[in-house]
Design a protein around this nucleic acid. Structure first.
Lengths: 200, 200
DNA sequence: TACAAAAACAAACTTTTGTTCTAAAAAAAT
DNA sequence: ATTTTTTTAGAACAAAAGTTTGTTTTTGTA
């Protein structure tokens, strides 16, 4: 590798982390300051190299406006819901503990949220205590799908095995039995589990 | 909600998606064009509102350089490895199929990569066919940990139950038996599985 | 209706920022 | 040693972009 290429890679990495940290790219002069390059034209010379190699793309008519051309999957920011209470809407700002990026290639679409799983009632479906489930906000699910059910002011994750006359929740755990909820108990389906993130 | 607030929220959302799409924020004039606002000062008036509410932050001496102040977890971009072959290093550019963002709050640190899981040999550990595992690149793991083992030019995900004299791989699947690999077969541990992402 | 506040506009202004031009070191190649 | 290529610098420039000022229109309310 040539000497200039090392510098070029350093500059490229600096730009990447700058964008990650700030949400906007550095200016020519900011790059120069970072690498003790005294002339803006020198920085310009390097940026043109990056452009020629296709590592950054840039609209010539815009200032401080280049983007990194990379095989990076765009993010889908999914809110993590802390307390699921019946009072307000699930996606009310008060309940959002943070927004977590997930690869859009895996989890796309809107109306998604995440929940922190408590308990091992769905362990045989690969959903364990401490995992995060990714949920699509919807009020109806098919029989056999895994749903988030709001019941007795708590959110429960179970497989739905019947809806009429009673709502039957099936835990995926051989040591547990089905939960039968009558309409009088006012259960409500608030989402369908479409994914799960676990950490060992 | 007041009329101005609706507009404000629309502008705020426009900025968010613009940054997501382009990697840099829109200019005052670009925002104006989008919302058919003819005066730059009107846009400026809205941006100041967003600043006052703490929704965006901005260095007054920089152009096209505001960032969204939000409880967004920063991304950790993790490369997805396609073909795990013994020939080149695992993390060689040729093998990278894409970089997937994951929440840094859940998966932090460097030397991570992702693999697409084939087969259900680890189903009882919650790792199923089609899942993505998140792996920390390392050559030694503790007994009992789940590892990625390169053997016979293929990557296998198994729990390690012994390393000497033979490497013993334990599938988490009651229908499968342990795999015993002698040192002559030249197995190598290339990572420790630290997480898993699954889609239903 | 009358008044005040909010929202929108227009134009001028200042600063930032990318680009260009010319030239000079420094390094590499011959 | 000489030529060529690469890298760096300085200064000037033009366009982009945020800001300011003053005015007008719209909207809500007493």
């Amino acid at each position: 590798m040539k000497k200039g290429d090392i510098r070029l890679e350093e500059i490229y990495n600096y730009i990447k982390t700058f964008v990650d940290d700030n949400g906007f790219p550095p200016s020519v002069r900011e790059i120069g300051e970072k690498f003790a390059i005294k002339s803006t034209s020198t920085v310009h010379y390097y940026l043109e190299k990056l452009r020629n190699r296709g590592l950054i793309s840039q609209d010539p008519n815009k200032k401080r406006a280049f983007s990194i051309t990379q095989t990076r999957s765009p993010s889908n920011y999914i809110p993590l819901i802390g307390n699921v209470s019946a009072g307000k809407g699930i996606l009310a700002v008060e309940n959002i503990e943070g927004e977590f990026p997930m690869p859009q290639e895996i989890f796309h679409g809107n109306d998604l949220y995440m929940l922190h799983v408590e308990g091992d009632s769905m362990i045989d479906a690969g959903i364990a205590d401490g995992d995060y489930v990714i949920v699509h906000s919807q009020n109806i699910v098919e029989i056999g799908e895994i749903a988030v059910v709001l019941w007795q002011d708590k959110a429960t994750i179970k497989r739905i095995s019947a809806t009429v006359p009673n709502l039957v929740l099936h835990p995926e755990n051989k040591q547990m039995t089905d939960i039968i909820i009558t309409p009088e108990e006012n259960p409500s389906i608030i989402g369908k589990v479409i994914g799960c993130v676990k950490k060992f």
